[in-house]
Computed example of a mutant assay.
Amino acid sequence: MDYTYLDCLALFGVGGAHPGGLQLTRNLLSSEKIDETTSVLDVGCGTGQTSSYIAEQYKCKVTALDCNKLMLDKAKQRFSSLHLPIEVKQGSSEDLPFDEASFDMILSESVISFTDVSLTIPEMKRVLKPKGVLLAIEMVLEKSISEEESEKISNFYGFSQLRTESEWYNYFQKAGFKQISAKKSNLPFDKNDVQNAPDFSLSEKIDDEFYDIFAEHEHLTKVYKDALGFRVFRCCE
């Protein structure tokens, strides 16, 4: 059986796997206007680390969505143990199971690249309220690499393609977002910062192949550290 990088994340139950981790998430949200009346959708919530943080920090309504049942089961366990009233939905970002104008904010942490971008971004725009905000953290191609290298990376992660900042901008603009900003994160990484570190919710049985997948991820990250970066996109009307 051919396992994917996303299968690997689910089996290891990695929380905060996106670039910048929980530290970046906390920093981003601190600049937004969020209170008890805010409705937030965490798309591709994984094991629920970010959803839990938002619910605890801001006491607002949080909806956590993921297409992976194993991830959602682990998220539910987290929410239950913390006694958090977070709504959990299984579904695809390409066809969100929500009405139009349902949310004040959507948070998408390294999720859109794994989907059909031409479907996901318009769906996010559809379910956002007129003055709603989309915060998306996505991988960006910083400089040209060979077609063979690009295909290797895309195939490993399950991306349709690698995109430059301007290509991402065009997708957001085409979906109807008018105010679009893209920022690099300069937050220093502190390996001793336990509060913001990735966490793990391990499955009982993990095949050796999954450790090989993680090793390949680390290898690609190191080899292409100058070619692959990420941006925080903030999009609204």
Rank of each mutant, 00 (worst) to 15 (best):
M1V: 12
Y5G: 00
L6C: 06
G13K: 00
G16K: 01
G16P: 00
G16D: 03
H18I: 01
P19Q: 08
G21L: 01
L22H: 07
L29C: 10
S31F: 12
K33L: 08
K33C: 06
V40T: 07
L41W: 08
G44I: 03
T47G: 07
Q49S: 15
I54H: 01
I54V: 12
E56A: 13
E56H: 11
K59V: 03
C60L: 11
K61Q: 14
D66K: 05
M71D: 08
R78S: 02
E87C: 09
V88I: 14
G91Q: 02
G91P: 03
S93H: 11
E94P: 01
F98E: 05
D99W: 11
S102K: 03
S102A: 12
S102V: 04
F103N: 02
D104V: 04
M105R: 05
V111G: 07
V117M: 10
L119G: 10
P122V: 02
R126M: 04
L134C: 12
L135V: 07
A136P: 05
I137P: 02
E138V: 15
E138S: 15
V140D: 00
K143Y: 06
S146P: 10
E148K: 14
E151A: 14
G158L: 04
S160P: 00
R163W: 13
E165N: 03
W168V: 00
N170S: 15
Y171R: 13
F172W: 02
Q173L: 14
K174H: 14
G176N: 06
F177W: 04
I180N: 03
K184E: 15
K184D: 14
P188Y: 11
D190L: 05
A197L: 06
D199A: 10
D199R: 10
F200G: 10
D208V: 08
F210I: 09
E216A: 07
E218C: 05
H219Y: 14
T221Y: 15
K222V: 13
K222S: 15
Y224H: 13
K225R: 14
D226A: 11
A227E: 15
V232N: 02
F233Q: 00
C235Q: 05
